[in-house]
């Protein structure tokens, strides 16, 4: 899985691409740990180019959310497509994460709060 990190209006965005399964969770966790250590608290994770996500991927997103919320931050999700959205719904993660259509809107939403 590829992770592209950018910054928009002071918000870190992580655009993931490929399969987000157990084999990719290590890379995601390490990347995220590094970002947290840099002091960022608010993130947008864009899953538009993720074509498959399993329980391992979802688990690492929840674990990342827990870490950011412990420092008063948040992770917002954008770009959920058909199958990935269904998995979010089945696992009730749409109740935990704020979900937006696109990355830009998710970044903007931090301002409107």
């Amino acid at each position: 899985m590829k992770i592209r990190i950018e910054e928009m209006n002071g918000i870190r965005t992580l655009a993931l691409a490929g399969r987000f399964d157990a084999s990719a969770t290590g890379g995601f966790k390490d990347t995220f740990k590094g970002l947290l250590q840099e002091g960022s608290a608010n993130y947008v994770v864009d899953l538009q180019k993720v074509d498959y996500i399993d329980s391992g991927g979802l688990g690492s997103l929840v674990s990342a959310l827990r870490q950011t919320r412990s420092v008063d931050g948040d992770i917002r999700i954008s770009g959920l497509s058909g199958k990935v959205r269904s998995v979010f719904e089945l696992t009730r993660l749409h109740r935990i994460f704020e979900i937006f259509d696109d990355e830009l809107q998710a970044v903007k939403s931090y301002r409107t709060n």
Binding site: D54, S55, L58, G59, V62, S63, R66, V87, L90, T91, R92, L93
Partner: peptide, 9 residues
């Protein structure tokens, strides 16, 4: 929470 996710998944 990861357990609940895995169970549902």
């Amino acid at each position: 929470a990861e357990s609940e996710i895995a169970e549902r998944f």
